[in-house]
Design a protein around this nucleic acid. Structure first.
Length: 465
RNA sequence: GGUCGCUUGGCCGAGCGGAUGCAGGCAGUGGAUUGCAAAUCCAUUUACACAGGUUCGAUUCCUGUAGCGACCUCCA
């Protein structure tokens, strides 16, 4: 049984889908005005892990993600570039999914652009209006939070002792509002900005309305899981609840799950501090996507996690070890038959793996189960105690682990080109003849070409640096 | 100003009131293995921020201090 910490109830709860075996999940996606950074991807990788684990548990899944493609920064940057905002955002959406795919995330069943759902937003605003939860001011439409009883139930903010704008992040662009915490649903059109002609006037969507519209359109008025970064709890998700429940009168989401912030070199990532990392920036430095994936997944989502380059170097080694392991296991020449000790070993590893992830996605413990399994199988491979049938079973265990983590890499062995193969063969001949001078010479030569050799009892193996 | 979280060995990170594992990974060191390597395996170095308190016993609970971080309408 999967247990998850639910921000709404502030406790760990057993997960039960609302509808039989079908899980409906919504994840707040990117705002596309720049390259995504690794902090963004921590959240998406967390959602990917949850997604994959739900499927591992046998649930059917409908996972929806939005793309925010209309917003102040987008408008500003697009106009600085002199491009249409739609073209501008399309460019960054494509770049975003290049990173997404390279990091081995599965695509959600539906990906929706905010600007493709303007009609749905208007419908919700009209319903809110009918329920007396909106008011107009200077051409914009606002949400009146005083009219919604449950306001604050997610973030549990004590509004009494709080100073609106106390965070120094004051919005300079203030409109006339009845209450400082009221938020805009529909912003009045301004000259030079994109806008839509609608029943409630010309304008563009507020930040929060898109997620209510898209999630309910794709998943229904009540669904199972809503995920996102911790910073979205307030005000974004609080306001989504106000909008959705204010419109429908039904509970919006059963389980709210949030991932904590990623720190870099011990501090909040920021461009000015020089600890700001993008996926492609790290790849340019020679790091692999798989190591980045491993690293960002290696700490539980409710913990702040400190990203360091040293740690990433370590992840690189770890991930190479896992890939080596899978390859070695696949290629091992085992004797026929089976060893009854082996299934015991894999059952124990899988049980530990699942128990760990059931415990609010304790990835550290799940990875420990994987690493211990790898070591135990390495020993069995060296001893020759692993037989043909076991080999297949062990490989399928690895595959099971990997459906959730996707960190072992591709076990397919590519072919060497003829010239290199000839060198490898020549070296084998030299070794048989105990001509080690020539043998080492060839090994060094291949190393320069980026080919690392391993002499094993089953023959020579090679891999690329 | 209000609310909250974290602090574990060189680094990243689990975990628990003491009885058979002071996880796991990375780095280092020593060893096994290897023609030598690589890979693998084995061993291993003052670990639980600081000061009090509760307890027979605390790294694990409580209080305070310090540092770091989060939210209080840009933010994953």
């Amino acid at each position: 049984m999967l247990n998850l910490y639910n921000t709404l109830t502030a406790q760990v709860e057993e997960f039960h889908p609302l509808e039989n075996n079908h899980v409906r999940m919504y994840v707040c996606g990117p705002t596309v005005y720049d390259y995504a950074h690794i902090g963004n991807f921590r959240t998406f990788l967390f959602a990917d892990l949850l997604r994959r684990y739900l499927k591992f548990k046998g649930y059917e899944l409908t996972h929806v993600m939005n793309i925010t493609d209309i917003e102040d920064k987008i408008i500003k940057r697009a106009s600085e570039e002199g491009s249409d905002f739609r073209e501008f955002t399309t460019k960054y959406i494509n770049l975003f999914f290049e990173d997404w795919d390279a990091l081995g995330l599965e695509r959600p069943e539906q990906i929706i652009r905010a600007t493709d759902c303007v009609d749905d937003m208007i419908e919700i605003i009209k319903r809110l209006d009918a329920n007396g939860l909106t008011y107009q001011s200077e051409g914009s439409t606002y949400y009146r939070i005083a009219g919604f009883d449950g306001y604050g139930k997610l973030s549990k903010i004590n509004f009494e002792g709080n100073i609106a704008g106390g965070s120094e992040r004051v919005d300079a662009d203030e409109y006339e509002k009845e209450n400082v915490r009221d938020f805009v649903l529909w912003k009045a059109a301004k000259p030079g900005e994109p806008s839509w002609e609608t029943e409630i006037g010309a304008g563009r969507p507020g930040w929060h309305i898109e997620c209510s519209a898209m999630s309910m359109k794709a998943l229904g008025e009540t669904f199972d899981i809503h995920a996102g970064g911790i910073d979205l709890v307030f005000p974004h998700h609080e306001n989504e609840i106000a909008q959705s429940e204010g419109a429908t009168g039904k509970p919006f989401v059963k389980y709210w799950v949030h991932s904590e912030f990623l720190l870099a070199e011990g501090e909040k990532m920021s461009k000015s501090k020089g600890n700001y990392y993008t996926v492609r920036g790290l790849v340019d430095q020679g790091f692999s996507h798989r190591a980045i994936r491993y690293m960002l997944l290696s700490a539980q989502h409710l913990k702040q996690f400190n990203f360091t380059l040293e740690g990433l170097r370590g992840a690189e080694t770890t991930v190479a070890r896992l890939q080596d392991f899978r390859l070695r296991l696949r290629e091992a020449k085992c004797n026929p038959g089976s060893n009854p000790a082996m299934p015991v070993l894999s059952k124990r590893a899988l049980a530990r793996f699942e128990a760990a992830l059931d415990d609010d996605l304790n990835v550290a413990e799940a990875l420990a189960a994987i690493h211990d399994f790898v070591r135990e199988v390495n020993i069995a491979l060296a001893d020759g105690t692993i037989k043909d049938d076991d080999q297949q079973e062990m490989l399928s265990v690895v595959t099971k682990f990997d459906t959730v983590f996707n960190i072992f890499g591709d076990a397919r062995q590519e072919m060497l080109d003829d010239e290199i193969q000839a060198l490898v063969d020549e070296r084998q001949v030299a070794r048989k003849a105990k001509n080690f001078a020539r043998s080492d010479e060839i090994r060094n030569l291949l190393a320069e070409k980026g080919i690392i050799l391993e002499d094993t009892k089953d023959g020579v193996r090679w891999k690329r640096k």
